[in-house]
Every structure is written in structure tokens, then in C-alpha cells.
Design a protein around this nucleic acid. Structure first.
Length: 737
RNA sequence: GGACGGUUAGCUCAGUUGGUAGAGCGUCUCGGUGACAUCGAGAAGGCCACAGGUUCAAAUCCUGUACCGUCCACCA
């Protein structure tokens, strides 16, 4: 696509060429650092991203104009599970698969695919006008983050916080990997509750197909009805042979559910797993990692669960085991990514003990070191941290940071002739004969480190030292960490935000960011999330093409209220897009009036010298006003100047609190309904006299509006004869009290 | 079962510390005037979910109810 004629592309190129997005660690200016949440590398950016980026950019541009050395750091996330799912679909188109390619080949083409997607992400960033420092862009699988992730793993390992073992995990049979609780969603389903006879007892279950994995029956110890059975063993028909099962008593059993008796399947149910541990029950695996029944299921082996259930029912009925069926509505766990039903099963996984990390995070939240917007998120995060479980950090994927643990098997002649396995933690191969662990780390293990890994941690970083002492060690980390501002969608508050707080605090004793902004979710008019499967998405590029970037950004700011969801449709966004496109037109016309259709400069005397001084503030303006002889003009000038001052104050205030919807509203109101509708209209009768004020107010408005409508404001700014090279180099006007 | 958020004009939503309700779009009436019809002037339209309470005064604070939504939780 040939986009060179697009004025916005041109302006963006100009900014980049002039290095206006670059942070400068050597600068004496105070720093203001903003970390861009790395989007997942899985495709186009959606409306939520567009809003997020518009917010980030406004914050960054505001601070830059206010005299800060701003770092707006971009990057992308490899997004393990999601990327593999997307990429596998791509491969399928060419009738390829992971199995056919093998790890090495697969990774090679995965990287190519990554580059391809990355280009579209990067293009939309630029299209939105994001003033990011591209020289510092990071990808989570880059060498820097790779080393940082290793450092993290190694530290935990050395402190004994990492363990590996067979535990019950949420397993997605489609993604073929373990996933975390937080990656599981629940869907309400209408199923049947089956009442089955187990020896002398009858119990209720929705999953008769897990029968093959039952190793006990359980009742509540207080339940008088079954007291006589507790401790006794019965021979139970599983449809794949008979098995002896004991009746046990456990508090978790709800006497009011079903018959008050439950079957215990320690291998495929979290609850049952815990019961099993308490009562020393054997664990049987009846569901394999593809979500099919194992050989334990006899003739039902190999079937998918749903299939097996349907197939079993007639037999259960015939044998008189199934005595009753009821309609039953309950929640089924599904994979957040692929929506397939998740199966709890036992798998060999890596875990991280998180209690110490969580304690530290709770403390910094309690100490109020992070300003949350909206503020109730402090409590929400804290509640989660207080109930946290160990983190399953391994994933059976190929796309990610491979677990840096290596094994070497040595034959050892012992009495019993066993082999011994040496284990080493190392980033690269420790040498010949060493084999690396097959699994990769959970994506969030590296994302959680993002605030640090993007700034070159851990090198030259003195752990635990206060920031005042760090300056000489690593200027960049010292200057930009902790980050001043971070933004996120609320849906990843645990997966990502909580992890960043835990990890940053653990390694540095500091918070990862001083302000945390949760924006709301944009939904459709029915309140549903936008998703590919629903096909209800609205492409931000559509809005940009129709109304322009600046107008699209403005439309999105109206939805940028912290923590508040918004309902939108294409029509509604078109409305707003149109509104702000009109606003842009209005401003262009104001500029035409003020700058192009101005009276002969011969009559204007010292006007230009004034506009050069304008940014110095009030004194320059006052001089001009004094030179005005008419009382009416004096009053008008005074009025607009006061209104402008008020606007500056309000806009600044709102921007500092990230109330972007309020800031934009104020400028909009001032420019259109005060400056244009009133002052400009009146000024027509005394144009020459008003000219300096017109120019001063216009220029100030452009600066105020620049964080939100960067392209338009630069375009018009360039029409001033007295100006800096770019509006980005201007100073934020200060309101005086 | 817990926690939290929402309920304001036809639609989508604002409303800082309590002081006679706001925006955009839509609707209606005027207006081609030298910045702007991608516009201007003007208008209609709200017992701010409901019920109590605090207060001189509440959309705004407190309590409860209803409906909607989100998150969390080991309901088989």
C-alpha cells in the first residue's frame, strides 16, 4: 500500500526523523516513564488496544510537553498458548502440523510468522500516532528478556522455591498443555445429574465417565444416614471390571447434594484429589492428555469424554446401575483461549512457591505505594494475593522460554542397578550429553518481569539498594524504574498486574509502577465482550479511515474512564468519530481565520514579537491588552484570557489524574463554544486589535490539545511563522493563580 | 455462596469535595452571513431505578429492595 501521501504518515515520519520520541537517560530533566503493555502476537489490534494506546500516548505527550524526559517503551509479547493456537491454524492451511515439522523446523517458521504479524502490530501503533521510543523496543523472547527470565528462574531455584512433580492441574486437551486457574473460564451448561448405584449406596454425578477412575465413595462424617458404611469396603462395578472401594468420611462432602454420597476420582477432580490426599487413596488416570479415556475404561477406552458418556448410559441403565436422571445446570470449566472443556488431571509440572512473593506484594499494596485507578483495585488484587496458590509455571509448548534445566543420565553401578540423573540449571547447554527440559515457561513468567527486563535488568543492578544509590550502577534502571505509569485491561489483573507487583518487589524491593490505570472494557450493545467467535468486533482501522486518527482517538477518550465499561456499536463510534472530525474541521477553520485571513501585518505592530513571547505567560499578554484602547475590547480580551486560564488549569488537573474524558471535554468546550463562538465572532469587528490575542489563544489551544490530537495540532502549529521546530518541543502552558 | 460495579434526556454516556441536572448524536424551528453548512442561532426532551434515612440542601452520603453486569469460590 502506498501511504506516502497521507499527511499523518508524513508528520509521524517527521517526528521520528527529529528523534522526538527518544528518551534521553543523560538528560537532566526529570524522568517520566510509561510502559506499554505488550500486545499478544496473534493478529490485528482491536478497539481495546486502540483505546489503550491513545491513553498511553496522551499521557506521554502531556508529560513531554510538561518538561519531563519521557520514556514510552514499546514491546510485544510472545503469548505462548495463544500464539501456538493461531500459528497451528496457519500451518493447517498448508496441511502442516507440529508433529510433521518437529521442534526445530517448527520454531523456525514460527519466528517467520511472528515477524509477519509483528509488522501489522507495529503499523497500527504508528498509525495511531504512538510516540514510543522505537530504539528500545523489546520482544519477550529477545536476548535481554531471555537472560532476565533465566536470572529469575535461577534465583527461585537456588532459594528452593521451584519444584517439579505430578500434581493435579487444569489441562486443556486442545492446547495440550496445563493451564492456570486464572486461565480457566466457566460456562453455564445444562446437563444431566445421574444417580448411580455404587454397591449398597446411590450417589449423584454429572460425569459418569470418570467412574473408571473412582477409588472411593465419600460421605459427610456428620451424616447419620451413612454412618454405618464408613470404613467399609465394597465391590463396585465400573463397567470395566469390578473394583474394591471404601466408604470414607470427609467434611467437604455436602450432605444436601444429591444423595449425600459422592464418588471420589482423585485423578480428575480437584476436590477429590484433596480428599484422596487426606485419605491416602490411589490415583488412577482414566483421561489422557488428548481428553480421551485410557485403557482403564475397558471397551470405552479411546473415546472422547462426551462420547463415552453417551455410550455408557444405555449399559448403565441395563445393568440397573443408573437409577435416576435429573436436569442439572452447572458451571463447566473451559479454556479461556480455545473454549474447550478443561480436564483436571495429573501431570508432571513445574511449580513456583509464591507465598513469599505474595506477602511482599500485599505489603506494598497496603503501604499505598501504587496508586490504583480506580482505587478499589488495590483491594481486589490484595484479596487475590492473600488466597494465592502455588503457580504452575510450566507449559507443554514450544513457543516460549524453555525451562533452563538440563539433565544428564549417568549409569551408576549400584546394588540395585539404577541410573542417576544429574540436574543443572543453565541458560545454554552445559556440554555434551546434557538434555534440556522439554517444557517452556508460562508466558506470564516472563511478562511478570516486563517492567525489569525491558530496562536491561538484571545486569549492573544492585539488588535491594534504594534508588538514590543506584544511579551510578545503572543509569537507565535508576532513572526509569519504577515506572511512573502503567495501564491494563482489567481482565489480566491477576495474570499480569499482580505478577508484576510480586516479582518486581521480590527482586528490587520496589513497586513496578507508581500508578496503575485500569481502563474499562468496550462491549457491544448487548454488553458482550468483543470476540472473534462472535464476530462483533469493530476494527479501529475502519474508524481511522473514515474519520481520521485524531478524531478516532478523541472518540476513544470519551470511553477512557477508569474501570468503567462502555457499550459501543459501529453506529455509536461513527457518531463520535463524526463529532470529532467536525471538531477537527472547526479547528482548521479557526486556524484559517486566525492565520491565513489575517489583516495586513503592517497594521499589527509588535504582534509577532508578542507571539514569540507568548509561552512565557501572562506578562506578554498583558502588554498587548494594555495597548488596546477600547474598553469593550479590553473586556473581551480579559474574558477570553481568563477563560483560557481556567481551561488550562482544568485540563492540566484532569490530565494529572488521567481523567482524559474530562480533559478533552474542557478543551472542546473552550475552543468551540468560547473561543470560536464568542471571542472570534466578536473580534471580527476589531480584527486588527484582536489579532495578537487570537494567535496567542490558538497556539495555547493547540498545545493543550496536542496530547489528544497530535497530528492536527502539529499540522496547524506549523503554520505559525514564529514557532519551534515541532509542537512537541513546546512548553505546556501554566495557569497562574 | 462471597466481593465489586452499574441503573441519569430517544441512543451512548459525563457529572471533582452534597447547593436549582450536562455532552455528543438524534429530533424540531430558523439562517447560505467574508473562518467554518463537516456550520451558526434557538427549542423540545430527565420525579437522576425504587423505598427509607442524614442535612437548611442529595443524582451526589447512609440503609434496604429490584434488575443488569463483572470478578472470585473445591458445589461433585
Amino acid at each position: 500500500m502506498e501511504q506516502d501521501l497521507n499527511p499523518e504518515t508524513k508528520i509521524y515520519g517527521f517526528w521520528e526523523k527529529e528523534n522526538l520520541f527518544r528518551a534521553d537517560p543523560a538528560s537532566s530533566k526529570k524522568s517520566y516513564s510509561v510502559l506499554i503493555p505488550p500486545p499478544n502476537l496473534t493478529g490485528e489490534l482491536h478497539l481495546g488496544h486502540a483505546m489503550q494506546h491513545s491513553i498511553l500516548d496522551a499521557v506521554a505527550r502531556f508529560r513531554r510537553l510538561s518538561g519531563f524526559d519521557v520514556l514510552l517503551l514499546p514491546g510485544v509479547d510472545h503469548a505462548g498458548i495463544q500464539f501456538e493456537a493461531t500459528f497451528d491454524k496457519e500451518l493447517k492451511k498448508d496441511s502442516l502440523s507440529k508433529e510433521k515439522l518437529g521442534r526445530e523446523e517448527w520454531l523456525k517458521s514460527a519466528w517467520e510468522f511472528k515477524e509477519k504479524i509483528y509488522k501489522s502490530v507495529s503499523a497500527s501503533w504508528r498509525m495511531m500516532g504512538l510516540s514510543a521510543d522505537w530504539s528500545r523496543e523489546v520482544f519477550t523472547l529477545d536476548e535481554g528478556p531471555r537472560r532476565a527470565v533465566f536470572e529469575q528462574f535461577k534465583t527461585y531455584w537456588e532459594k528452593g522455591m521451584i519444584y517439579k512433580g505430578p500434581y493435579i492441574v487444569q489441562w486443556c486437551p486442545k492446547c495440550k498443555t496445563a493451564i492456570e486457574d486464572v486461565e480457566v473460564e466457566y460456562e453455564e451448561r445444562e446437563e444431566k445429574l445421574y444417580y448411580l448405584k455404587y454397591g449398597p449406596l446411590t450417589l449423584a454425578t454429572v460425569r459418569p465417565e470418570t467412574k473408571f477412575g473412582d477409588t472411593a465413595m465419600a460421605v459427610n462424617p456428620k451424616d447419620k444416614r451413612y454412618r454405618e458404611y464408613v470404613g467399609k469396603e465394597f465391590e463396585i462395578e465400573t463397567l470395566a471390571g469390578k473394583r474394591k472401594m471404601k466408604v470414607i468420611a470427609d467434611d467437604v462432602v455436602d450432605p444436601k447434594f444429591g444423595t449425600g454420597v459422592i464418588k471420589v476420582t482423585p485423578g480428575h477432580d480437584f476436590n477429590d484429589y484433596e480428599i484422596g490426599k487426606r485419605h491416602n487413596l490411589p490415583i488412577l488416570q482414566v483421561i489422557n492428555k488428548s481428553g480421551r479415556l485410557t485403557e482403564l475404561a475397558g471397551k470405552y477406552a479411546g473415546m472422547k469424554l462426551e462420547e463415552a458418556r453417551q455410550a455408557m448410559i444405555p449399559e448403565l441403565r441395563e445393568r440397573g446401575i443408573l437409577v435416576k436422571e435429573e436436569d442439572y445446570v452447572h458451571n463447566v470449566a473451559v479454556c479461556e483461549r480455545c473454549k474447550s472443556v478443561v480436564e483436571p488431571l495429573i501431570s508432571e509440572e513445574w511449580f513456583l512457591k509464591v507465598s513469599e512473593l505474595a506477602d511482599g506484594a500485599v505489603k506494598v499494596i497496603d503501604d499505598g505505594k501504587i496508586k490504583f485507578l480506580p482505587k478499589n483495585y488495590a483491594k481486589i488484587l490484595k484479596d487475590w494475593l492473600l488466597n494465592i496458590h502455588d503457580w504452575c509455571i510450566s507449559r507443554s509448548l514450544w513457543w516460549g522460554h524453555r525451562i533452563p534445566v538440563w539433565y544428564r543420565v549417568t549409569e551408576v553401578q549400584r546394588a540395585n542397578g539404577t541410573k542417576s540423573i544429574e540436574v543443572k540449571v543453565s541458560l545454554d547447554s552445559p556440554g555434551a550429553g546434557w538434555v534440556q527440559d522439554e517444557q517452556v515457561l508460562d508466558t506470564w513468567f516472563s511478562s511478570g518481569l516486563w517492567p525489569l527486563s525491558t530496562l536491561g535488568w538484571p545486569f549492573d543492578f544492585a539488588q535491594g539498594k534504594p534508588s538514590s544509590e543506584r544511579a551510578s550502577l545503572d543509569p537507565e534502571l535508576a532513572k526509569y524504574f519504577p515506572w511512573d505509569f502503567e495501564i491494563s485491561a482489567p481482565e489480566i489483573k491477576y495474570l499480569w498486574i499482580a505478577r508484576m507487583i510480586m516479582i518486581a518487589n521480590y527482586f528490587t524491593g520496589e513497586v513496578p509502577f507508581k500508578a496503575m490505570f485500569f481502563h474499562g472494557m468496550l462491549r457491544d450493545l448487548q454488553g458482550r465482550k468483543f470476540s472473534k467467535s462472535l464476530g462483533n468486533g469493530i476494527d479501529p482501522m475502519y474508524l481511522i479511515a473514515k474519520w481520521g486518527v485524531d478524531a478516532t482517538r478523541m472518540a476513544l477518550y470519551t470511553y477512557s474512564i477508569p474501570g468503567r465499561d462502555g457499550r459501543v456499536s459501529r453506529e455509536i463510534l461513527d457518531e463520535r468519530g463524526k463529532n470529532f472530525r467536525n471538531f477537527a474541521t472547526k479547528i482548521r477553520n479557526i486556524a484559517r481565520f486566525v492565520l491565513e485571513l489575517k489583516p495586513d501585518s503592517a497594521h499589527l505592530g509588535g504582534v509577532h514579537s508578542h507571539s514569540a513571547k507568548a509561552t512565557q505567560g501572562e506578562s506578554a499578554t498583558s502588554e498587548v491588552l494594555r495597548s488596546d484602547s477600547s474598553e469593550v475590547a479590553d473586556a473581551d480580551n480579559k474574558w477570553i484570557k481568563e477563560e483560557l486560564e481556567k481551561t488550562i488549569k482544568k485540563v492540566t488537573n484532569h490530565l494529572e489524574k488521567v481523567g482524559l474524558h474530562l480533559a478533552t471535554e474542557e478543551i472542546y468546550e473552550f475552543i468551540w463554544h468560547k473561543f470560536a463562538d464568542v471571542y472570534i465572532e466578536k473580534s471580527k469587528r476589531r480584527r486588527e486589535n484582536a489579532q495578537p490575542v487570537l494567535e496567542y489563544v490558538l497556539k495555547t489551544c493547540l498545545i493543550l490539545l496536542h496530547p489528544f490530537m497530535p497530528f492536527l495540532t502539529e499540522e496547524i502549529y506549523q503554520k505559525f511563522t514564529k514557532r519551534k521546530k515541532s509542537i512537541m518541543l513546546e512548553e505546556w502552558p501554566s495557569a497562574e493563580d
